[in-house]
C-alpha cells in the first residue's frame, strides 16, 4: 500500500490552514440551506435530498478516516450502514423506538462487527484485505436477506421515525435535518481531532511506512483495528440516520455496490481530507439526482428512441465518469481546488 501513501504524502506537509476554508464553507452552506429550502417552494424535496447528502457524507467521511489516513481499502463499508439501519428497524419493530436506546445499541453492534471482522481482515494485507472486507460485507448482506421476520429480501417500512427522549420531534423534516447536521458536524470534529492526535499520527505513519513504524516500536495492527472500529461506528450512525430518513430499511443498503459507491465518493472528493469525502458524497448524489435531466436535455440531437433509452439508463454515464476520474483526475475535487489555488 505504499503507492497509495506516496500519493497522499504531500498534503500532510502542506500548510493546511489555507484549506480550512473549505469545511467552514461546507458547513455554512448546510446551515443556510433550510432557509433556501423554504424559499424554493419544494421544501420537502430539497430537505430530504440534502439530508441524504449529509448522511452519505458522514458514511464517506468515516471511510476516509481509514482509507485516506490509514490506506485501508475497505470494500465492505456499506455493511455498517446496514447494521445501523437494521439496529433502528429491528428495535423499532420490537417497540423500542427511542433513538437514545437505538443509536447506542446500533453503535455497539457496529463496533462489535468491526472488531471481529477487522481482527481477521487486518491480519492480511493489500488485495487480500480488499477482498475479505468485501466478503464480510456480502455475508452481512445475505444475513439481512434471510431475516424473514424483518422483511427478508424486501426490507421493511418503519412505522415512524425514532423518538428522541420520548418526543416525536424528528418527525419534523427540519428538526431531522438539524439533527443530521449536528451528527455530521460532531463526527467531523471528532475525526479532525483523531487525525491530529497521537493516535492519528500513528495511523498516518503506518499508512506511509508500516515497517518503519514497527521498527520504532509500534504495533500497527492495534491502531488500525481501533481506527477500523471507530470508522465502523461512524458509518453505523449514518445507517441509523438513513433508516430514519428513508423510514425504510432493506438489504439494498448494504450491497457491495454501495460499498463501491462509498469509495467512489471518497476518491471523487479527494482522499485524506475528511471534508473532501463530504464534497464527494454531495457531488455523487446530486449527479445521481440530476443526471437524467441533464442527459435528456443534452441529447436533444438524437432520435427519440435512443434519447429515451439514454435517459432511462443514465447510470451508464457513471461508469465512464469513474474511469476517467481514476485515470486523469488525481486527488479528486479537493485536488482540483488545491491545484486551482496554486495557479
Amino acid at each position: 500500500m505504499t503507492e497509495l501513501a506516496e500519493k497522499q504524502s504531500a498534503p500532510a506537509a502542506l500548510p493546511f490552514l489555507r484549506f480550512e476554508l473549505a469545511p467552514i464553507l461546507i458547513f455554512a452552506a448546510f446551515a443556510a440551506a433550510p432557509a433556501f429550502a423554504s424559499a424554493s417552494g419544494a421544501e420537502g424535496y430539497v430537505l430530504s435530498l440534502l439530508t441524504r447528502v449529509m448522511i452519505f457524507g458522514l458514511a464517506a467521511m468515516s471511510l476516509d478516516l481509514i482509507l485516506g489516513y490509514g490506506a485501508l481499502v475497505s470494500f465492505g463499508h456499506a455493511a455498517f450502514f446496514g447494521i445501523g439501519a437494521y439496529g433502528v428497524g429491528i428495535l423499532a419493530s420490537h417497540g423500542i423506538e427511542d433513538a437514545l436506546i437505538q443509536v447506542p445499541v446500533a453503535l455497539a453492534a457496529s463496533a462489535l462487527f468491526a472488531l471481529v471482522t477487522g481482527a481477521i481482515s487486518l491480519r492480511t494485507k493489500g488485495v487480500y484485505f480488499i477482498m475479505i472486507t468485501l466478503a464480510f460485507g456480502q455475508m452481512l448482506f445475505f444475513l439481512a436477506t434471510s431475516l424473514a421476520p424483518y422483511g427478508g429480501d424486501d426490507g421493511m417500512t418503519l412505522a415512524t421515525r425514532s423518538l428522541l427522549g420520548g418526543s416525536g420531534i424528528l418527525e419534523n423534516d427540519f428538526a431531522f435535518y438539524w439533527a443530521t447536521l449536528i451528527c455530521l458536524l460532531a463526527a467531523y470534529a471528532l475525526s479532525r481531532a483523531i487525525v491530529a492526535s497521537r493516535f492519528g499520527r500513528v495511523l498516518r505513519g503506518t499508512r506511509e511506512n508500516a515497517t518503519r513504524m514497527e521498527a520504532i516500536g509500534f504495533q500497527p495492527f492495534r491502531y488500525q483495528l481501533a481506527a477500523y472500529v471507530i470508522s465502523g461506528m461512524m458509518a453505523g450512525l449514518a445507517g441509523c440516520l438513513l433508516a430514519n430518513q428513508a423510514e425504510f430499511i432493506s438489504p439494498a443498503f448494504m450491497t457491495w455496490q454501495r460499498s463501491g459507491e462509498l469509495i467512489f465518493m471518497v476518491v471523487l472528493g479527494g482522499l485524506g481530507s475528511l471534508h473532501g469525502a463530504i464534497i464527494g458524497a454531495a457531488a455523487f448524489l446530486l449527479l445521481e439526482e440530476f443526471l437524467p435531466e441533464i442527459l435528456h436535455a443534452g441529447s436533444f440531437f438524437l432520435n427519440d428512441d435512443i434519447r429515451w433509452r439514454l435517459t432511462e439508463n443514465w447510470q451508464m454515464v457513471f461508469g465512464p465518469l469513474l474511469i476517467l476520474i481514476v485515470l486523469f483526475v488525481r486527488g479528486g475535487i479537493m485536488g482540483l481546488l488545491r491545484r486551482g489555488h496554486h495557479g
Partner: peptide
C-alpha cells in the same frame, strides 16, 4: 495502486 484498479474496474461494471 489497487485502489485505482478497484475503482476503475468498478466503473466498468457500472457501465
Amino acid at each position: 495502486d489497487h485502489l485505482d484498479q478497484v475503482l476503475a474496474t468498478f466503473g466498468v461494471i457500472l457501465f
